[in-house]
Design a protein around this nucleic acid. Structure first.
Length: 191
DNA sequence: AAGAAGATTAAA
DNA sequence: TTAATCTTCTTG
């Protein structure tokens, strides 16, 4: 897929409007990606891979584009990323929010008592739980483990907004980099 | 070997 | 505002 040859910032924008699909024994869940964040490897203080830091966890970021990178954070949550950039260039895109399309009942089942549909997937930890993503997916590749992407809605450039990323106050000069992208006026973006 | 902090969330 | 509580990095 030549999608994976795009520069990470371009890919982060291209992913908006695409449908992310996960099928396992419980069934199929899917949603439109409405919010992403780019993490640009060695030069990006906010990235896990800043300075080419290489550990069992970040190892996956050095793999080829299209590899799935999931990690555990705050002791309770899974975040779902797609590795981008060339091999040995540890860049990745964090999926922050999606808009549920299929398998909404399965999502509610996984999340427990959720009243509003929008609450299912409007944050990185939430969408991971709703979609059934776990640490076991880290290092696997898209299309090879029941997870895939599909072209869905074309999002024109004027419908895309950019701004600073969330939750990286420690990142000094990188705090203000406008590497977060979302679809304008979409109710399913986080916060 | 032990402690601190983090790409978060839900509940008070 | 805070608790929940896991992985990795830092320091001793």
């Amino acid at each position: 897929m030549d999608l994976w040859n795009l520069p990470t910032l371009e890919l982060a924008k291209r992913l908006l409007g695409m449908e992310l699909i996960h099928t396992n024994q419980q069934g199929t869940t899917s949603g439109i990606i409405v919010e992403t964040e780019a993490y640009l490897g060695p030069e990006d203080r906010a990235a896990h891979s800043f300075g080419n830091r290489r550990t069992p966890r970040t190892e996956v970021m050095f793999h080829e584009a299209g590899t799935i990178y999931t990690y555990f954070i705050y002791g309770m949550h899974v975040c779902f990323n797609i590795v981008s950039g060339p091999i040995d260039k540890p860049e990745a895109i964090l999926i922050r929010a999606i808009q549920p399309v299929n398998g909404i009942e399965i999502m509610k089942d996984r999340r427990g008592n959720i009243k509003k549909e929008v609450q299912l997937t409007n944050g990185p930890g939430k969408l991971s739980k709703s979609m059934g993503f776990s640490l076991e997916h880290s290092g696997l590749k898209m299309n090879e483990c029941g997870i895939c992407l599909k072209e869905k809605v074309a999002v024109p450039p004027q419908e895309i907004e950019a701004g600073p990323r969330i939750g990286i106050q420690y990142a000094e000069e990188a705090i203000h980099f406008p590497y977060r992208f979302w679809i304008k006026n979409n109710p399913y973006v986080s916060r």
